[in-house]
Simulated assay, not measured.
Amino acid sequence: MAAIAEAFRDGGIWMYSILLVSVVALGVTLERFFFLFFKYNMNAQAFMAQIQKLVMADNVDRAIKLCNAAPSRVVPHVIKAGLTRANKGEVEIQNAMEEATLEIVPKVQKRTQALLTIANVATLMGLLGTIVGLIEAFEALETATPENRQRMLSRGIAMAMNTTAFGLIVAIPTMVAHLLLSGVTKKILDDVDMYSVKLENLLVTRGKGGPVE
């Protein structure tokens, strides 16, 4: 712990800047993790199987109530839009679900992409601290008195190395978090696309009085 405190002190003001970036990265990661894993995501396959059974049984009202039971989930939000137009034409069903999809997509994608930018900022701040530290080190070689030269040289190199390390320590986990959250985001949106098309086909077939598979 003492070594970490010393490294932080040697890094100078750049360490505080990178620390601020790390707090932002952690906040965005936790917020996105909560929403994507616990509010928006669900077992869409099992949910859609229930919806299909209810539609096949001509019990659309119960299917809508099933969607209402999970108001924060993304797939039920879009499926409900189609079910409320179940007795309308194909175009109205499609338009309703497209509108619901356009409403929900920005919420699902919000701030996840920003993690890449935050990681880059942390890396660049570490690099800037490195450059400033090396400038101080070279200035020490040129201007410092012999008795102070070694101390100033060590301080400049310490700043350079510590800011680089801290910038990477923040950037790498942030990029990993972005990779993980992007995967979950894609899975949710893929579920929306797939099951909205399946429901559309289901309702259109039902409306034409054909066999529902």
Rank of each mutant, 00 (worst) to 15 (best):
D10A: 15
R62E: 12
R73W: 06
A69H: 13
D193V: 09
N43G: 07
R85E: 12
N120C: 01
D58S: 06
V192G: 03
V105L: 11
L180Q: 11
V28F: 07
L54S: 05
L124I: 12
E99C: 09
L189V: 13
H178Y: 10
G12M: 06
T130F: 00
M1L: 04
I93L: 13
M194N: 12
D191S: 10
T164R: 05
T163G: 02
Q109G: 01
D61Y: 03
A2T: 08
K53N: 08
C67D: 01
R62H: 06
G11M: 00
A69R: 15
T84I: 15
R149P: 05
V170P: 01
M97D: 05
N162I: 10
T174H: 02
F34S: 12
T143Q: 08
I172H: 06
E99W: 09
G126A: 03
V212D: 02
L153I: 11
P173S: 02
L134M: 15
S22V: 11
T145I: 04
A96G: 08
F47M: 05
L19T: 14
L127A: 03
A140M: 03
G156N: 08
A171S: 14
F33A: 11
F35L: 14
L115N: 07
M194Y: 14
L199H: 02
L116C: 00
T143I: 12
K107R: 15
I135Q: 04
H178W: 05
A171E: 08
T145S: 14
E139L: 09
A70T: 04
A96S: 12
T164S: 09
E6P: 02
E6R: 07
Q113H: 13
A3D: 08
L66I: 01
G82H: 04
L30C: 08
L124Y: 07
L153F: 01
N43S: 14
N120P: 04
A137V: 05
R155T: 09
I118G: 03
I131A: 09
A49T: 13
E99F: 14
M15Y: 07
T130L: 00
R9G: 01
I135K: 07
D10P: 02
A63R: 00
A86I: 03
N41W: 09
T185E: 13
I64V: 15
T112H: 04
P211E: 07
G82W: 01
G156H: 08
T164W: 03
V176Q: 00
A100L: 11
T143H: 11
R149T: 10
K198Y: 08
N41M: 08
I93S: 00
Q113K: 15
M15N: 04
V105M: 13
H178N: 12
R32P: 07
S196I: 09
F47V: 10
L127C: 03
N148H: 10
R32T: 06
L141S: 05
N162D: 11
D191C: 05
M15S: 09
D193G: 12
L19Y: 06
L128N: 04
S17P: 06
L141Y: 08
L179M: 14
M125Y: 11
V28W: 03
N59R: 14
V197D: 01
A49R: 12
A119H: 05
L19F: 15
N59C: 03
A144D: 11
A46C: 00
E92C: 05
E90R: 15
M175D: 00
L179T: 15
I79C: 06
N41A: 14
